[in-house]
């Protein structure tokens, strides 16, 4: 028999995902994928289900139906710690840094899942080069940092896991525009270095500026998808997909 070789599966594939909170259905039948090296944006209004999808990928929530696959293998029944070890790091909505621990300790915990302990010091230095303010604040308790600094720390903490896929949940939320620009410049730098990202944002412009492709989510369903260039040129369609102006 000579079957054609199968196409390599994408790094992350989500198929017909359904997620409930008790009786409330938050995600109904979403499919999306992220190929290695890609930056994919997941856009949508408040309550559209963006964070729910990220939490399900990370194993904090169990789907009611559907699949999450990494390299073609299902991961949606694994505990969060296993999923981090498989290479998915998650910088959560609202930053969620450990406020009682120092910046350095936060970074240290970001790397706890790694088997290659010997590479951790070099990566820590890389984080401090990427975000020099964190080096200055190294011994400061994270709870005393500004919102923007905490966002940088949340990002650096996730990167310390040396992930193959970085999940970012609204890194621009509640942060001054100038800092947002600086954070997205850093994300652009990471993209050039080949980091794969799934980026949740409400800030359409900065997200489409960084992403290769995007999905727009409305009340738990994908209402529009396309390349970032396409979507940038059709701002009205994006807004419509966002808010559901027309059925």
């Amino acid at each position: 028999m000579s079957n054609p070789p199968p196409l390599a599966p994408p790094l992350l594939a989500i198929e017909d995902l359904r997620v409930d909170y008790g009786a409330v259905r938050a995600v109904h039948g979403v499919s999306l994928h992220v190929a290695a090296g890609e930056v994919v944006a997941l856009l949508g209004a408040n309550g559209a289900g963006k964070s729910t999808i990220l939490r399900t990928i990370s194993g904090l929530l169990r789907p009611r139906a559907g699949q999450v696959q990494l390299d073609g293998a299902p991961i949606h029944r694994l505990p969060p710690a296993r999923i981090v070890r498989l290479g998915i790091a998650h910088s959560p909505e609202g930053r969620r840094v450990f406020g009682n621990l120092t910046v350095a300790e936060n970074l240290r915990l970001g790397a706890t899942s790694r088997p290659d302990r010997d590479k951790v010091p070099a990566d820590r230095e890389r984080m401090y080069d990427l975000f020099p303010i964190l080096r200055e604040r190294m011994h400061q308790v994270a709870g005393t940092l500004s919102g923007g600094e905490q966002q940088m720390l949340a990002l650096a903490r996730a990167l310390m896991a040396a992930p193959r896929l970085l999940l970012l949940d609204e890194p621009s939320l509640g942060i001054a525009p100038l800092i947002v620009r600086s954070i997205f410049a850093t994300l652009g730098e990471l993209k050039r270095q080949g980091t794969t990202m799934l980026l949740v944002e409400q800030n359409i412009n900065v997200a489409l500026g960084l992403a290769d492709r995007a999905y727009v989510l409305r009340t738990g369903e994908v209402s529009l998808t396309g390349s970032a260039t396409e979507l940038r040129d059709n701002y009205e369609r994006v807004a419509e997909a966002y808010l559901g102006a027309r059925q």
Partner: peptide, 17 residues
Amino acid sequence: LGMRAAAEDMQAANLVG
């Protein structure tokens, strides 16, 4: 450190593995 982190924010502790 992990124990203190989990005491502060269990979900974030899960997310760092």
